[in-house]
Amino acid sequence: MSADTNPPAAGVRVPWHEVHPLVRAAVEEFLGGRVAEAVTQSGGFSPAAAVRLRTEDGRRAFVKAVGPEPNPDSVRLYRAELEIAAALPESAPAPRLLTGFELEGWVVLVFEDVEGTHPALPWRRDQLDRVLEAIDEMSAVLTPSPIDVPPIGKLFGSSFSGWHRLMEEDTDGLDPWVVRHLDELAELESGWVAAAAGDTLVHADLRADNILLAADRVYFVDWPWACLGAPWVDLVAMLPSVGMQGGPMPHELFTDPDPAVTAVIAAFAGYLVRHGRLPDPPGLPTVRAFQRAQGVVALDWLKLRTGWV
């Protein structure tokens, strides 16, 4: 697959000048000077501001800010990210949070400005190898979790039941393999919570747009979904997006035949397939297309893992 034929992980960003004026003033007060340059950053789905700022005296910061419109769920996610980012230890490969606050219904996070770029798409093998090594290192550093977060089953339990839900919904347009095996998929999916359990702090939303490659290290950004899980969860959940975005297919990168992994892949594939059939959420016009494209790769991986015909 080429990157040109796959949907980008990008939403509709809010430019800095459209952020609430009191929020902009508060950020300038914290930074100690007026903003001279504001460069919107692409990547990510939320209808929010994501801006690299430079003040008149040269201070830099990366600012994320979201208001209650058009998607109130984004405010909830930014609150969660603010809590997680404030608690992450220095050992976590994440940009440092400088400050965060809520004002006029907006949630604002101010981070250090990292000099880095997202991985090139289609994926380059040298960059992918850097990221895979960094994920392994992150899992080791964050086991056991240094902060208090919910277990993965509690955070995603209601969402990762796609096959069960499809049993009660219209199955027109589903892959014929899915229709043949829907009962078995639902049964396999039912074991994912126990399979994914662990004491590692996992990011739980790794994709190319949540990764920054700096000269000397790899940073993982956007942590609102952080939770406790097995140390391999982040890798397994990221691989369908790697295959979809021009990299190797998941089975080429992960060969452990553990049935626990297969149960998690089943749940993740069910989530992607079912959610890809839903209408676009308010203010997130690209997320369903991205989920559908990931779902194709995840489902192919699941077919190989199960061996069902």
Score class of each variant (00 low, 15 high):
L53G: 09
F290I: 07
R60M: 13
A87W: 05
S91T: 15
T306I: 09
D4N: 06
R130S: 06
V66T: 13
A26T: 12
V51M: 05
T143L: 03
M249R: 13
R288F: 06
S74H: 12
E69R: 13
A94E: 00
N210K: 08
A293S: 15
R24Q: 10
P250W: 05
P72N: 02
I265T: 01
P15H: 03
R277E: 11
G11N: 05
L31M: 15
H20E: 03
V221I: 15
L213E: 10
A196N: 08
L103E: 06
P240H: 10
M238N: 08
S161H: 11
D175I: 07
P8M: 01
V149N: 11
S161F: 02
N71G: 10
D280H: 12
D205V: 01
R130C: 09
A196P: 05
R288G: 11
R59P: 05
E81D: 13
V221H: 03
E37R: 15
D136M: 04
A269W: 03
D256Q: 06
A208G: 14
K154C: 03
A196R: 03
M1K: 10
I152A: 13
L185P: 05
S91D: 11
T40Q: 12
G44C: 03
P150Q: 09
L88D: 02
W163Q: 07
S190R: 11
P257L: 01
G276W: 00
W106Q: 09
A49Y: 01
L121M: 09
E28G: 10
W16K: 10
P279K: 00
A214T: 12
P146H: 05
A92N: 04
F254Q: 02
T262S: 07
P240N: 11
V233T: 14
R60D: 07
P95A: 01
R13A: 14
V110L: 07
L121V: 06
A267Q: 01
P68M: 02
G67H: 02
G157M: 05
V242N: 00
L97R: 13
R52M: 13
L88K: 02
A86L: 14
D57A: 12
A94Y: 01
S46E: 07
N71L: 14
A61H: 07
L22E: 12
R52K: 13
M138L: 14
V273Y: 00
A214D: 07
S91E: 13
A94D: 01
A85S: 15
G173L: 05
V149E: 08
W308E: 09
E90R: 14
D113H: 14
V179I: 14
E104P: 00
A298Y: 07
G246N: 02
P8V: 05
V297L: 02
A195S: 13
V75L: 12
L185D: 02
V66W: 01
R76F: 05
A263M: 11
S74E: 14
P282F: 08
A194G: 08
S2Y: 03
D205N: 11
Y219F: 15
V51S: 15
S42L: 10
I84K: 06
G247E: 05
V233N: 07
P72W: 03
V309C: 10
P72R: 06
Q294K: 13
L302K: 03
V108R: 01
V14L: 15
D234Y: 04
V202Q: 06
R292W: 08
V179C: 10
A134D: 10
G11F: 00
R54Q: 14
L304Y: 12
Q127N: 06
A215Q: 15
